[in-house]
């Protein structure tokens, strides 16, 4: 493991420049450029706000702001967009970089770092935009925001764990990528992002409780909407579970690495 980290450290410039190039390449020749990183999720928020604010607006106890539902949505969406970006990118990480891996030797462990780095940058931009919009609608930031770096770290550990595990399997069994597209859509709807857990029928509560992402998303919502710290106990469990998952994923990645190029 230390050998892996050393290689990553030696390649830190490469990782940084790759993240930069990745972002640059993604928005090359588009007029609005990097703004799209923010505009896409915000547009989604706007759509849900317009369609659902009447239905959902009244269901948020303890808030006085008339835009409370939109704020709730943006908080959840901030967490979700980080999750979905890390998962989808790691899922196709090795398949997308197959050609490079076949031709040039470089520490393969740099690839997840590049994916996470680029996802983090776009998420941070979304965060800045979110805070800016919050200020406009009269919802100033609070000290609870200091929780965010930790929450993002847990979020990344969880998403990278899942993404990397499936990404390695995806190299050998490509169906994984297809199946995940469907599962991720379902996952979005079993996570309280556009709705509140309180509106669900009793039996459904258990499904939500079994969803680790729920604890991460609700922590984002607590911090951003209510300005209070997250529920610690479930968050600690989620964090431990995520780290375990990530460790398994890295172990699997190391075992698979010698055979990966054979089938790419």
């Amino acid at each position: 493991m230390s050998e892996l980290l050393r290689a990553v450290w030696r390649y830190r410039h490469f990782i940084l420049s790759s993240v930069k190039n990745d972002l640059k390449a993604r928005f090359a020749r588009s007029r609005l450029g990097a703004a799209w990183m923010v505009l896409q999720p915000l547009a989604q928020v706007a759509i849900y706000s317009v369609v659902l604010s009447r239905v959902m607006g009244a269901k948020l106890p303890g808030t006085t702001n008339q835009y409370a539902y939109s704020i709730y949505l943006m908080a959840g969406m901030l967490a979700w967009s980080l999750f979905i970006e890390v998962v989808t990118r790691s899922l196709t990480l090795f398949v997308d970089n197959g050609n490079l891996m076949k031709k040039i030797y470089f520490p393969r462990a740099t690839l997840p770092f590049i994916a996470v780095g680029s996802a983090l940058v776009s998420n941070l931009m979304l965060f800045v935009a979110t805070i800016f919009i919050f200020a406009i609608v009269g919802h100033p930031p609070t000290w609870a925001l200091l929780w965010l770096p930790l929450l993002m770290a847990i979020n990344v550990a969880f998403s990278l764990g899942i993404g990397l595990l499936l990404g390695v399997i995806n190299v050998f069994v490509r169906d994984v990528g297809q199946v995940m597209a469907v599962i991720l859509q379902l996952w979005f709807w079993i996570t309280p992002i556009v709705y509140m857990p309180s509106i669900l029928p009793a039996g459904f509560g258990r499904v939500i409780a079994a969803n680790p992402l729920y604890y991460i998303v609700s922590a984002f919502q607590n911090v951003l909407l209510y300005g209070r710290g997250p529920d610690l106990l479930p968050l600690v469990w989620t964090a431990l579970g995520s780290i375990f998952l990530l460790a398994i994923a890295f172990l699997m990645f190391r075992r698979a690495a010698p055979e990966m190029v054979d089938v790419l």
Binding site: Y11, S17, S18, N21, K24, A25, A28, R29, N99, I104
Partner: peptide
């Protein structure tokens, strides 16, 4: 010198690609 230009990105300049490719070499 097997696959020249592997990993070059068309939307970057030659100079930027040099940084990238040399970085890839460590």
């Amino acid at each position: 010198i097997l696959e020249l230009g592997m990993g070059f990105s068309p939307d970057l300049s030659g100079r930027q690609n040099v940084y990238h490719a040399a970085g890839l070499m460590g």
